[in-house]
Simulated scan of single mutants.
Amino acid sequence: MKNVKKSLLWGLLLLYFPVMLGLVGRHHQKLVCSEVEVNVLDSLKNGFVQPHEIKNAVLGKFDGILGEPINALKLNEIETFVEKHPAVYNCEVYNTIEGILKIDLIQHKPLFRVFEKGRSYYIDEYGNEMQLFDNYTARVMIVSGVIEGQLDHLIYLARLFRKDLFWTAQIEQVYIKKNGDYVLVPRVGDHLILLGPPERIDEKMRNLKALYKQGLSPREWNKYKVINLKYKGQVLCSKNRNL
């Protein structure tokens, strides 16, 4: 008897699913696009892109998208179009059973901002140049001086600072001298930090953090003009601003 009941149950299920799939398919064919919704997934971290800006661009590019059958929308083309925006790193486009076209996107993440030869731009976390935007300025480390040939070192340094809240809060700017020495400009304290050439960076920053946390009190941060980390195994503090 139990086997008969199981057989009947499985038979009903096998009949149910094709019927439901058919109904859903017919509903989907009749469904039209009623709205376009844009979701900037990382909007709390960066504000280069506004949802209404992307929505208006999509409606302008794909005229007549509202009211069009939802299964006729060219989702791949819409994704490709949105990803051409200079601030958009990745985009996913899909539709819902209610007829809403959803656009989820992630922005490029700038690591630092460069001032070089009369122009300024960002370098993102993948080492790509990224233009500036009038509507939003990212709070990132500033880099200036002789930049050529230093990109890999700067990316490493910026990533090191980003992983450490102490350095994120303390280091405001990096200046590269003609001889290749790096000079760090802190937010707190009337001193400069001579990092020297971009080698043994982790060791130098550990020594500097130890000096900040164990060797100097906050009141002493303005006592010295230069903290020199250039030489291996040494942290030299000077009252003269000679670099």
Rank of each mutant, 00 (worst) to 15 (best):
K2F: 14
S7K: 09
L13S: 01
L14S: 08
Y16A: 12
F17M: 05
H27Y: 15
L31H: 12
E37Y: 04
L41Q: 15
L41F: 09
S43A: 15
S43W: 13
L44I: 14
F48A: 04
V49I: 12
Q50R: 09
P51S: 02
P51E: 09
V58N: 07
G60I: 06
G60C: 04
E68M: 14
N71P: 05
T80I: 11
F81I: 00
V82A: 10
E83A: 11
K84N: 12
A87I: 09
V93I: 05
Y94I: 01
E98P: 00
G99F: 06
K102Y: 11
D104S: 08
Q107A: 06
Q107F: 07
H108S: 00
L111I: 11
K117H: 14
R119N: 14
Y121M: 00
F133Q: 03
T137E: 11
V140P: 01
M141S: 05
S144T: 13
E148P: 03
I155L: 03
F161L: 01
L165W: 13
T168Q: 12
Q170C: 01
I171N: 11
I171Q: 08
E172S: 02
V174W: 02
K177G: 00
D181Y: 08
Y182E: 04
V185Q: 09
R187H: 06
D190K: 10
H191W: 00
G196K: 03
I201R: 06
D202I: 12
D202R: 03
D202V: 12
E203D: 14
A210F: 15
L211I: 12
Q214V: 13
Q214T: 10
Q214F: 13
G215A: 10
L216G: 08
P218R: 01
R219V: 13
E220W: 04
W221C: 00
Y224N: 02
V226E: 11
L229E: 04
K232T: 11
N242W: 10
